[in-house]
C-alpha cells in the first residue's frame, strides 16, 4: 500500500492539490462527469439510412461473410450450406440458445457445449451487432462461452436483424439497460483473425478463426 500512497500523493503534489488522497468532493465530481456518458462526434457513415446495407458493407471489408435467412428455423440449413461450400465438416460446438433447432434434419452434429481445441466450427449468437464497423458484440455468461468464437477455425454467428445498431455507443447504452454492467468479457469481433507482423503482409488466421460467417435472421 506504500506504493499506492506514494503514487497518489505524487500526483496530487504535481497538480497542486493538498493531501494524499482524492477528497470526497473530487470523487463525486468524477462520478458526476462519468454519469453524463458524454458521446463524442461520430462519422457520418455511422448513421447510414440503410443500416443493414452499411453492416454488410463493413463485413465485406473485414472478411466476414454473411447470409440472410427468413426465420431462425432456417439457420441449420444455412449453416449446412455454408460448411459444405467450404468443404468443412458438418459438426458445430454451439451455445445452448440454438440447441433446440433441427440440426439433425440439416445433417449437422450439434454439440451443445463450450468449444475445445478439437472443434472445427463454433456457433454463437451475439448480444448485438454494430453497423458502423461490421462488428459482432458477444457478452460472456455461463450460457454464452467466448471459446466458441475463439478456438475453432470457423466461427458462425447468428445475428438478429433488429439487434443491429448504428454505433458502439448505442451498443453500450443497450448493454446498460439490459445487463447493467459489462460482463467479464465484452468481446467485439470484426472479421477473422489476422496478422501483418511479417513484412506488413496481411495473413488471415493468426490465432483465432480463419473464417467468420454471420447468419442474419429477422
Amino acid at each position: 500500500m506504500a506504493a499506492r500512497r506514494g503514487i497518489l500523493a505524487r500526483i496530487r503534489k504535481a497538480q497542486g492539490r493538498d493531501g494524499e488522497e482524492p477528497t470526497a468532493a473530487e470523487l463525486a465530481a468524477v462520478r458526476e462527469a462519468i454519469a453524463r456518458h458524454e458521446v463524442g462526434p461520430q462519422p457520418p457513415f455511422a448513421h447510414a439510412p440503410d443500416r443493414l446495407a452499411q453492416f454488410r458493407k463493413e463485413c465485406d471489408r473485414l472478411g466476414t461473410t454473411h447470409a440472410t435467412v427468413s426465420s431462425l428455423a432456417e439457420v441449420p440449413a444455412e449453416v449446412a450450406r455454408y460448411l459444405a461450400a467450404g468443404a468443412l465438416a458438418p459438426a458445430v460446438a454451439g451455445w445452448g440458445e440454438f440447441a433446440g433447432l433441427d440440426w439433425a434434419g440439416a445433417g449437422i452434429g450439434y454439440r451443445n457445449r463450450p468449444a475445445d481445441a478439437n472443434d472445427a466450427t463454433g456457433l454463437t449468437g451475439c448480444f448485438c451487432a454494430i453497423a458502423e464497423t461490421g462488428t459482432l458484440l458477444l457478452l460472456s455468461s455461463p450460457a454464452a462461452p467466448k471459446l466458441n468464437a475463439l478456438l475453432p477455425e470457423t466461427h458462425v454467428c447468428v445475428v438478429r436483424a433488429a439487434r443491429i445498431l448504428d454505433t458502439m455507443e448505442e451498443a453500450f447504452a443497450l448493454m446498460r439497460s439490459e445487463a447493467g454492467e459489462p460482463p467479464r468479457a465484452t468481446f467485439f469481433v470484426s472479421g477473422p483473425s489476422r496478422t501483418a507482423d511479417i513484412e506488413q503482409t496481411i495473413v488471415i488466421g493468426a490465432h483465432g478463426p480463419y473464417r467468420v460467417h454471420a447468419v442474419i435472421v429477422p
Binding site: 468524477v30 462527469a33 462519468i34 456518458h37 458524454e38 458521446v39 463524442g40 461520430q42 462519422p43 463493413e58 471489408r61 473485414l62 464497423t133 461490421g134 462488428t135 454505433t167 458502439m168 455507443e169 453500450f172 454492467e181 459489462p182 460482463p183 467479464r184 468479457a185 465484452t186 468481446f187 467485439f188 469481433v189 470484426s190 472479421g191 477473422p192 483473425s193 489476422r194 501483418a196 483465432g208
Partner: peptide, 30 residues
C-alpha cells in the same frame, strides 16, 4: 472515464496505427 470515451478513442487508434477502421478483436475484461 467511460465506455463512451473508449468508443471515441478506438475510432482513432487502429486508423492511426495501420489504417484499419477497427481491429479484429476488441476485448473489454471486467
Amino acid at each position: 472515464g467511460t465506455l463512451e470515451d473508449f468508443a471515441t478513442l478506438i475510432r482513432l487508434l487502429p486508423r492511426s496505427a495501420i489504417g484499419q477502421t477497427v481491429t479484429n478483436y476488441l476485448t473489454l475484461t471486467t
